[in-house]
């Protein structure tokens, strides 16, 4: 399955995905332990991001988007909880979360593509963050589906180099915890 097909499938079956927001101790090896646990049980990680948070230097937040049909969610959460360095786990269903992710892409800009590219940038509300005589680098911070849309639009261009960060999420305000 190529990435485009995976994205298509995800878009059409959004309930499969669960977002685990995991507060961990900021210690060496934490990510190895989390990744190892997923590997051992054959759990499928859809995306993963690790970064410091408001929790200070002692803790980080890991946002793991999991395919909840690859394993029972109860088992995933339980196994994660058993890791000594994992402090707290919130399980957010996509409908109860606000999610964002960052997409950046470098697109070659020979003459005949400049106009359509500028249109796409404008429509997607993306921004140009770097430019030289032969290419531009653009970025979009948006919902996962906005990033999906932009990625699909950019498929029309040749030799695009594109990265996505994976999602970060917080509970939607007004949602019972």
């Amino acid at each position: 399955m190529n990435s485009h097909e995976i994205i298509e499938e995800v878009i059409h079956t959004p309930v499969r995905l669960h977002i685990l927001s995991v507060k961990v101790e900021n210690k060496p090896g934490v990510l190895m332990r989390i990744a190892g646990l997923f590997t051992r049980r054959g759990f499928n990680i859809y995306s993963l991001s690790v970064a410091p948070s408001e929790l200070g230097a002692r803790f980080s937040r890991v946002t793991i988007v999991v395919d909840a049909e690859s394993a029972p969610l109860e088992q995933i959460v339980g196994q994660l909880n058993k890791l000594i360095n994992v402090v707290e786990i919130s399980d957010l269903s996509p409908k109860d979360a606000v999610e964002r992710e960052l997409l950046i892409a470098t697109v070659p800009t020979h003459v005949d593509v400049r106009t359509p590219l500028l249109d796409i940038i404008a429509t997607a509300n993306a921004a140009i963050i770097d430019v030289d005589s032969s290419a531009v680098t653009i970025m979009l911070a948006g919902t996962p589906s906005a990033c999906d849309d932009l990625e699909r639009e950019l498929e029309a261009f040749a030799n695009v180099e594109l990265y996505r960060t994976g999602r970060v999420a917080l509970p939607r305000l007004g949602t019972p915890a």
Binding site: P28, G29, M32, R33, G36, L37, R40, I84
Partner: peptide
């Protein structure tokens, strides 16, 4: 530490 990650309750370096 890496080799034993899946077979320990916890480990310390």
């Amino acid at each position: 530490i890496g080799i034993t990650a899946g077979i320990v309750k916890h480990s310390y370096l």
